[in-house]
Design a protein around this nucleic acid. Structure first.
Length: 760
DNA sequence: GTTGGTATCTGTGGA
DNA sequence: AGATACCAAC
C-alpha cells in the first residue's frame, strides 16, 4: 500500500491523520491544512480497510463536503463516493426520510426554509390577535430557533423562568404559546424547519423506537466533524448520541478553530470544544494543534495574530508562516462608499497589470451583502468579470419559489406554506377571503389546509375552482410515481399557466422571471441526468421529484455550479470562510458596519465580530487591502461612520504607507460623489490615519525634520502626544511618542512617513 | 375578487 | 431604498 500521501504532511498533521482510533481534537489555525488532514484521515481509514460507508463526515456547507469527496477520490479513487459526507442538515434529512414515520412525520416531509417559518409564525401571530409590531415574526422565529438549538421544548420553555422573564421584559409574554402552535402546525403540515432537521433526529435518537439508534451507531463506526467551533448544543448532543455511550470505541475526530467561530448568532458555541475535551478526557483523547500557516505571508499572519489577542478568551496557539515576509497591508481611507469602490477597483486593475493576478485570485469581502453594489458598478465599468455570491439567492426569487411551491404540494399535500403560495397564483378566483375560510375550517377540524379545503364554507364557484385545483395537483402526484422530476416540473410550469403568466409580463422583470424559471428547469434536468445518491453503501440513485425536492431545500446560492470563467469574487465574510485568494480586499471597515451595529452591545458580540475580521484577513495569501469610507449611503440616508476599531488593531508595522494617486487618464470614470464633500477630496499620505482623533480639516502637518524630543504634537489617529525621544539615522529618524489617548500609548513612529503637527 | 396606488416597515450573517 | 401590507375603487 502506498503511504506516499503521508509524505505530504508535517509531523503534527501526520499524527492527526494516523491516530484513527479513539477521540481526537484537532485545533487548526487558518491555512494550516485542515482540509488536507481531514481528507487524508479518511483516505487513511479506507486504506486501512474501513469500508467507506462506515465513515460519516459532517461539514457545514455542501461545497466543503463536495470538495472533500473530490480530494479523497484523488487518493483512494472512486470508493470515495461511498463515504457519507455532507452537511449536518442534509445527512440528517436523509436519515429522517427513512425514519420520520417513527416519530410521527411522513417520509415525504417538506423542509420549510426561513421564509416559510417566518410566514407561518406571522400567520399564527395574527391568528392569536397579537400585535405584530410587538411580536416581530423574525424576532420570535429567532427565539424559537434558539430554544430548539438548546433542546428546549415548548413545555420546557414555558417552565423556564429565565426565558419567560426575558419575554415579559420584551413585552412578548406569549412567545411560548406561539412556539407551541408553530410546532403543532409544522407537524400538521408534515414540515420540518431547519432546526427540526436536527431536533427531530435528536428526538428520534432520544426516544429510540425499535432501537433505531443502534443501527446508526453500528453504521457509522468513524465520525468526523469539520468546523466544530460552529456547532450548536443540539448538534453536539446528536454527535454524542452516536459516539459517546458505554462500550463505544469513540472513534470521533473533530476539527475546529475557536478563533474562527462566527456563527454564535445562530446558536453555535465554542463551549462545545471545551466540553469535548472534558467529555472525552477519560477516554484517551488526543489533541493536535496545527499551527503552521501554509497560506499567507508573515505580514498577514502576524497582523492576524495581533488582532485576535484583543479577544478575551481563546485556546492558546502560535500561528506562524514560513512564506516569507511578503507585502505589507494596504489601507484605503475613502471619503465615500463610491470612492471606496473606485479605489478598490483601481488597485485591482493595478494588481492585474503589475502582478499579473487573474480575476479568480482576487476577492472583495464585506460584512453585509448590500455592500456589493458599488463594487459591481465599478467592476462593470472597468470591464472586469466578477461574480456576486449570496444576497438574494436564486431559490428565494418569487418565480422560483412559485414553481417549487407547486412541486412541494404535489409531493406533500399538507404543506401549508406551499398551499397558500400557489392556491391562487396564477389567479384562479380563490381570493384571500376564501383562503381565510379554509384556514378557519382547518383550525376547527384540526386538519391540514388541503384536507379542509372542500369542507370550508365558500361559494359554489370557488368550490368549483378548488375542486379542479385539487384534481390538478392529485394528477401530478399520481404521475410523479412513474415520471421523473424534470418531466413533472416541465408539465407543471406549462399546465399551471405559470410560464404563460410570466411570459405575458413583457417588462424587464418579467423577462428575467421567465429566464429564471427556465434556469430552474435546466437545473432539474441536470439533477435528473445525474440523479441523487440515496445511500452511499448501495450507491442507489433516485431521479424522482421527491428526491429532487429534498436535494434542493438545503442548497444555497454557493452551491450552484459555477462555470469556469475567470471572475473576481464578491461575497460576505461569512461566506468566505474556508476559502483563500491571492489578493483580498476587506471593505467597509467602519464602526456600526464592521463591527455591525447589531453586535456592539456586549464584549461577546464584539469578540465574534473580531473573529469575523480575523477570518476575513486570513483569507489572503499575498495581498491584503483594508478599506473604509468616511460616509456611506445606507438605508436611504447618508451616514458618517468612524473607521472600524479593528483597523486600529492592525499593528502599524504591518501596514504599508500609501499615497493615493489618481490613476492617469481615468478622470472621466471618476465616481459621482455626493456634493458637499467634493471639494475636500485630497490625497492622503499617512498610512495610519485610520481613526481620527483630530479633525482632518483642522490638521496642519509640520515638516517632520522639525520634530524634536520634548515637543507636544498632534497625530490624526492617535491624538495629542508627547515626543519622548528621537533616534535613527538622519534620513530615517524615528520618534518615540507617548499618546495618552490610545490603548498602548507608547508608539515608535518613522518621521519620514508620519504626519505630525507640532503644537508646542 | 382583483387592481393599483399609498402607507408602513425594515434593515447581519446562512443551513 | 426596497419590499410588503393595506385599502379604496373597480
Amino acid at each position: 500500500m502506498s503511504q506516499s500521501y503521508l509524505d505530504q504532511l508535517n509531523p503534527v498533521q501526520a499524527q492527526a491523520v494516523t491516530n484513527t482510533e479513539g477521540p481526537v481534537l484537532v485545533v487548526a489555525g487558518p491555512g494550516s491544512g485542515k482540509t488536507r488532514v481531514l481528507t487524508y484521515r479518511i483516505a487513511h481509514l479506507i486504506q486501512s480497510g474501513v469500508a467507506p460507508w462506515e465513515i460519516l463526515t459532517l461539514t457545514f456547507t455542501n461545497k466543503a463536503a463536495r470538495e472533500m469527496k473530490l480530494r479523497i477520490e484523488s487518493v483512494v479513487g472512486t470508493r470515495a463516493s461511498n463515504v457519507w459526507a455532507g452537511t449536518f442538515h442534509s445527512i440528517f434529512a436523509r436519515i429522517l426520510r427513512v425514519e420520520a414515520e417513527k416519530i410521527g412525520y411522513p417520509s415525504n416531509f417538506t423542509i420549510y426554509d426561513s421564509d416559510d417559518s417566518k410566514s407561518l409564525i406571522g400567520t399564527i401571530i395574527s391568528e392569536m390577535n397579537l400585535d405584530k409590531n410587538t411580536y416581530n415574526a423574525n424576532a420570535v422565529r429567532a427565539r424559537i430557533s434558539s430554544a430548539k438549538s438548546n433542546l428546549v421544548t415548548p413545555k420546557l420553555y414555558q417552565n423556564n423562568q429565565e426565558l419567560m422573564s426575558q419575554d415579559r421584559m420584551a413585552k412578548r409574554p406569549f412567545v411560548h404559546a406561539i412556539y407551541e402552535k408553530y410546532t403543532a402546525r409544522c407537524k400538521k403540515a408534515g414540515a420540518m424547519d431547519f432546526d427540526d432537521l436536527l431536533y427531530r433526529l435528536f428526538e428520534l435518537f432520544q426516544k429510540n423506537p425499535d432501537n433505531v439508534l443502534d443501527k446508526y451507531r453500528k453504521r457509522f463506526r468513524y465520525l468526523l466533524v469539520d468546523e466544530f467551533q460552529d456547532t450548536n448544543h443540539l448538534q453536539y448532543s446528536i454527535i454524542k448520541k452516536l459516539v459517546h455511550y458505554d462500550g463505544s470505541p469513540r472513534n470521533i475526530c473533530v476539527v475546529g478553530d475557536d478563533a474562527q467561530s462566527i456563527y454564535a448568532f445562530r446558536g453555535a458555541t465554542i463551549q462545545n470544544i471545551l466540553d469535548f475535551e472534558k467529555d472525552f478526557a477519560n477516554f484517551g483523547i488526543q489533541i493536535f494543534k496545527l499551527e503552521q500557516n501554509y497560506r499567507s505571508t508573515e505580514q498577514i499572519v502576524q497582523a492576524a495574530n495581533e488582532v485576535i489577542t484583543n479577544n478575551s478568551r481563546q485556546i492558546q496557539k502560535k500561528i506562524w508562516s514560513d512564506k516569507g515576509e511578503g507585502q505589507k497591508i494596504k489601507i484605503i481611507n475613502a471619503l465615500t462608499d463610491t470612492e471606496e469602490g473606485k479605489r478598490v477597483t483601481d488597485i485591482i486593475v493595478e494588481q492585474k497589470n503589475r502582478s499579473h493576478l487573474m480575476n479568480s485570485e482576487i476577492a472583495i469581502l464585506y460584512r453585509t451583502n448590500s455592500q456589493s453594489r458599488v463594487f459591481e458598478e465599478y467592476l462593470r465599468r472597468y470591464n472586469i468579470a466578477y461574480r456576486v455570491f449570496g444576497g438574494q439567492s436564486f431559490y428565494q426569487r418569487k418565480e422560483v419559489k412559485d414553481l417549487i411551491g407547486y412541486l412541494r404540494l404535489i409531493i406533500n399535500h399538507n404543506d401549508e406554506e406551499a398551499f397558500k403560495r400557489v392556491i391562487n397564483f396564477p389567479k384562479r378566483g380563490i381570493g384571500k377571503t376564501s383562503v381565510d375560510k379554509i384556514g378557519q375550517a382547518a383550525g376547527q377540524l384540526n386538519e391540514s389546509f388541503w384536507d379542509a379545503m372542500l369542507k370550508a364554507n365558500v361559494g359554489a364557484r370557488t368550490k368549483n375552482s378548488l375542486g379542479s385545483f385539487k384534481r390538478m395537483i392529485e394528477g401530478y402526484t399520481l404521475r410523479s410515481q412513474s415520471e421523473n422530476a424534470y418531466e413533472i416540473a416541465q408539465a407543471v410550469a406549462k399546465d399551471s399557466k405559470l410560464l404563460d403568466t410570466f411570459k405575458a409580463d413583457t417588462t424587464v422583470e418579467g423577462l428575467s422571471r421567465v429566464d429564471n424559471i427556465n434556469a430552474l428547469l435546466d437545473g432539474i434536468k441536470t439533477f435528473v441526468e445525474e440523479g441523487s445518491i440515496l445511500d452511499p453503501e448501495t450507491g442507489q440513485k433516485d431521479t424522482s421529484l421527491s428526491a429532487y425536492l429534498q436535494n434542493i431545500a438545503l442548497l444555497t446560492d454557493h452551491d450552484q455550479d459555477v462555470n469556469l470563467t475567470d471572475y473576481v469574487t464578491l461575497m460576505s465574510v461569512h461566506a468566505a470562510k474556508g476559502l483563500e485568494f491571492k489578493s483580498v480586499f476587506v471593505v467597509g471597515l467602519e464602526e456600526k458596519l464592521f463591527p455591525s451595529f447589531m453586535s456592539m452591545e456586549t464584549i461577546e458580540q464584539l469578540d465574534e465580530e473580531r473573529r469575523l475580521f480575523y477570518v476575513a484577513i486570513t483569507r489572503a495569501e499575498q495581498y491584503l487591502t483594508l478599506s473604509h469610507a468616511r460616509s456611506r449611503f445606507r438605508f436611504g440616508k447618508m451616514h458618517n461612520n468612524e473607521p472600524s476599531r479593528f483597523l486600529e488593531e492592525v499593528p502599524t508595522q504591518h501596514v504599508e504607507t500609501t499615497a493615493y494617486i489618481r490613476p492617469r487618464g481615468q478622470t472621466d470614470m471618476s465616481a459621482p460623489r455626493s456634493s458637499g464633500i467634493k471639494g475636500n477630496f485630497k490625497p492622503r499620505t499617512t498610512a495610519s490615519n485610520t481613526g481620527f482623533k483630530v479633525n482632518p480639516a483642522d490638521f496642519r502637518p509640520s515638516p517632520s525634520s522639525d520634530v524634536q524630543a520634548g515637543m507636544k504634537v498632534l497625530h490624526l489617529k492617535f491624538g495629542e502626544g508627547k515626543v519622548i525621544a528621537v533616534d535613527g539615522s538622519a534620513n530615517n529618524r524615528i520618534a518615540t511618542i507617548h499618546f495618552p489617548e490610545i490603548d498602548s500609548p507608547e508608539r515608535r513612529i518613522m518621521l519620514k512617513f508620519a504626519k505630525l503637527q507640532i503644537v508646542e
